[in-house]
Nucleic acid binder design. Sequence first.
DNA 1: GTCCTTGCAAATAGTTTGCAAGCCG
DNA 2: CGGCTTGCAAACTATTTGCAAGGAC
Lengths: 132, 132
Amino acid sequence: MKIQKYSRQRESIINYLKSTKEHPTADTVYMNIRNIYPNVSLGTVYRNLNLLVEQGDVLKIICGDGSVRYDGNPMQHYHFICTDCSSVQDLEMPPESLKHIDLIASTGFEGDIHGHTALFYGRCFECKKNYL
Amino acid sequence: MKIQKYSRQRESIINYLKSTKEHPTADTVYMNIRNIYPNVSLGTVYRNLNLLVEQGDVLKIICGDGSVRYDGNPMQHYHFICTDCSSVQDLEMPPESLKHIDLIASTGFEGDIHGHTALFYGRCFECKKNYL
DNA sequence: GTCCTTGCAAATAGTTTGCAAGCCG
DNA sequence: CGGCTTGCAAACTATTTGCAAGGAC
């Protein structure tokens, strides 16, 4: 891990990410940080997001359509994305509850499987209400 | 499904995709089609890939890093990506062997889960040899 | 003072689109 | 012929990077 100095922009980014459950995009982070530091640049936001992801302080979520979102909770957990409103939500399931699928995937495969990524989709609670 | 006319470029793209297990990127498809039709444009390749994916003739694979690859086998199946050489390989496991994880993910979640995407990673058979 | 970090702008990668010409049916 | 498809180039989106000025320690 390389030497790193304090920066209020970085602090502000991580604070914002830890304060929300929205799983914002880089651009949404940028919009929010600009409320506090109006001169912050998008480049700075990207540089810090990459840094935080590298350090393991923030998760980078690649959604099913290739778009990218960030999560201030670095603990391993699974995500759900609503096919109606595109919101990304955390799932409560314990992370180890899917550990066995690596073994299932290994059957008949000659390489070594070390892990997986998974993303669940469907209709979220809010959108479900519109279908009554 | 809209009216569609034959085009040798499209035919050539689907033939190429069905002939390989490499899971090529759009650019790799372009390179290969250019061997047959040197004047084909990248725009045409993208237009046809999107069309084929829409029609369900081809799968679009979003890799863990957000890069995109295409698969000429449209049957549902899971993929493995090697963390050493980045190759993408098909897994033999029956697609229904993971159907139960949607139920696991549903516990404690108020929305409806309709499905999931999953991608396995590790070291492929070829790369494994280099570690003996 | 050193050198990490920033703002700005330009550069890049991947993909899409407008348009006139070309090809299928 | 009508209209889907193409090649070409320009446009676009998301992200990265070079550089001189600013800030942390």
